[in-house]
Design a protein around this nucleic acid. Structure first.
Lengths: 224, 224
DNA sequence: CCATTAATCAATCGAACATTTGAATAGCGG
DNA sequence: CCGCTATTCAAATGTTCGATTGATTAATGG
């Protein structure tokens, strides 16, 4: 019966994508690649995996055609095969958030004992940046900033923040963001800034969320 | 370091969804549940799996909160936990179609040697149904028709089609549809109808695709 | 309350997977 | 062309997964 074979063959193909996102290290790698392309070593470092292990996971993602690899000199740079992959990852995350109560519990537990962060409405934000009303601060590593950031944002990676406080105005309000709702970089940044007497809030959205809402994203270095 | 644990814990939760869709039988079950709720036995029959095996796969889907189980008398009826699950499944399928060239190849190979089916534009279809210009024919099992169908569609399951040809007008054009692009019911129906001298075409879209485009879907029995 | 039917559970076995380790490859820079 | 580095490959580990089988539970009807 040819029809049964057709269906089985198609479901098997679909499951290739499923298998690719069935492991937490691979999801973490995908998340990082949604921010910017990276070398194997950089991915391994960020995700806290061994290089060999990272390489193998990346090959699984590559076999499912979710990422592309390109050799650039001595390094192999991996990147999302398509922006659609990021959209798919975000759909998965949204579904998980709404279906798995466990996620909310984890986030709540983590946020316990921390200052609650004011929600920032992104619609008004761009306008306020243009009016020099607020400073939007991108605290991710610089290569992620270069791969895409909120227009007008200033790049100071979290590690360098303490050393570069003089770049920031104490008069203006600071809106810090990082990779997205589950990234802690901006939380840490706000904690530091407040301790130093700045007025700072965290924006939960990262660049992928920003992009998904159809808002503009700038690439490259920002004119200072 | 609490931040690493937070991330690991979240990716682990996300991978629960991934694992749920990492197996072809489970994807087939999800696909069927996108059409209508069903008992374990019915799902096993449609998917060609043993009852015990089906039950276990359904429990995996349930553990990932993608489906709900409700005991109704002697039977357990499984249904999608949320319409969002169907949307996620369709996103996965769309991604697979665009990323995995293998899928296109499988479908092309299957369609080889069959009469090419005219593409039906759904925008105009509802209007033509209202004008009694065409007959829209739903050839899925009746319980799927009852769970949701295209407004104005007539329900004749493929198996009963040959015995009920007298219900259909030879003057009007027939547009047959089934579960979606990878379902062969409508292909078979069109083949039969054409052999019997009817003017019939297949519409690739099924009810989930129809619904996803925001077009109206009717439920229950249709007034004849 | 016993027989029947639907579904699940429990145990099993082989296949597939994740991670680690150490070796191999490929592109540079001297 | 030699040594260095980034990455991949290959083998070996323990673990998890998938399907089958037979037993068990739960609801129903006599």
């Amino acid at each position: 019966m040819a029809e049964a074979n057709l269906k089985k063959a198609i479901y098997k193909q679909l499951s290739r994508i499923g298998k690719a996102v069935a492991s937490s290290p691979r999801l973490e790698l995908l998340d990082l690649l949604c921010q910017s392309p990276r070398t194997v070593e950089a991915l391994a470092r960020e995700a806290g995996l061994s290089v060999a292990n990272t390489s193998q996971h990346l090959q699984v993602l590559h076999a499912a055609r979710l990422v592309d690899a390109r050799k650039e000199g001595l390094f192999v740079t991996y990147r999302l095969a398509d922006q659609q992959v990021c959209e798919f990852y975000r759909t998965l995350r949204t579904l998980a958030e709404s279906r798995l109560a466990e996620i909310e519990a984890i986030v709540r537990q983590f946020n316990q004992g921390r200052e609650s962060m004011e929600a920032v409405e992104k619609q008004a934000l761009l306008e306020r940046v243009r009016r020099a009303d607020v400073i939007v601060l991108d605290v991710r590593p610089t290569e992620e900033y270069r791969a895409g950031h909120i227009p007008g944002a200033v790049s100071i990676p979290l590690r360098e923040l303490e050393a570069h406080l003089s770049k920031l105005s104490r008069r203006r309000k600071i809106v810090a963001y990082c990779r997205g709702p589950y990234c802690v970089l901006a939380v840490e940044a706000v904690k530091l800034l407040r301790a130093k007497g700045f007025r700072a809030v965290r924006m939960e959205q990262g660049v992928p969320e920003w992009r998904a809402e159809g808002l503009p994203v700038a690439v490259g270095e920002e004119a200072k």
